[in-house]
Design a protein around this nucleic acid. Sequence first.
DNA 1: TTGCGTGCAAAGGTTTTGCATGGCA
DNA 2: TGCCATGCAAAACCTTTGCACGCAA
Lengths: 141, 141
Amino acid sequence: MPEKETSGYHTRQRAAVLSCFVKHPDTHFTAESLLDHLKQDGVIVGKTTVYRTLDKLVETGMIRKFTVGTGDSACYQYTGENHSACSSHFHLKCLICGTLFHVDCDHLAELGEHLLADHGFSVHYSQTILYGICSACRPKS
Amino acid sequence: MPEKETSGYHTRQRAAVLSCFVKHPDTHFTAESLLDHLKQDGVIVGKTTVYRTLDKLVETGMIRKFTVGTGDSACYQYTGENHSACSSHFHLKCLICGTLFHVDCDHLAELGEHLLADHGFSVHYSQTILYGICSACRPKS
DNA sequence: TTGCGTGCAAAGGTTTTGCATGGCA
DNA sequence: TGCCATGCAAAACCTTTGCACGCAA
């Protein structure tokens, strides 16, 4: 599975999709909501193309994929400028408010080492998200 | 939301499904794998019944439902006598071979406590998956 | 007998694939 | 020009629903 950071051509559709994420870095889109959003901007893109573009953007690390529940739609959100920085820490996503937290902490680094040493599992931080409830939302539940 | 712990009739199918979970408390089943498992035991159950029975068992708290990823099958596992032990259960998924490992380990339980104490974040283990490369696939990459 | 349980078939939704066409470099 | 990208339609996939029949109590 080789790294391919600048693979592919530059097309109208791909630019439109990426633009949508960049303009709304704090929003997560489903394939459907992204399609609607593009339509409102006067950009018509096929559903198939959206799915394939999303896959590519996830591969290159520009966006991140969330799977909240089986049967529901997958969610995608912009990773941000500093991809590399995100490869060394964990992400926490609140199931209620949807906020994405970036946590850089020794405990988490230790966890990675432990999983590698004792379980033979090499964690890919950039692809991993911990789901739960954040401090702001906890009282409500 | 009323309590309904002993709702419903006692049927052959329901007994077979529950028996499967009780016999394999450390295994998680999908609807499909459960169906296969029952078939190997000579018990034929309809797919619809399995889904409905699983829903009922989740409602009563006898089993727990995991949502591993969108598009993938939902996983179910026996809750057992001690709910608390099951709440510290992480999932590891290999990005290459797709194998899903479930790991019950003190380190992971500590992580949850740490995130709650120091970051105010309450992790929902049933929705969380750590992605990476498993020991079998690592040499290949 | 009453009413829930069952299971086939069909529908529901999201995502993927086949294939011919279109567009980037 | 070559190859990738696109998009329609259809398929694949997991899950739910409609409906008639079966079975537990």
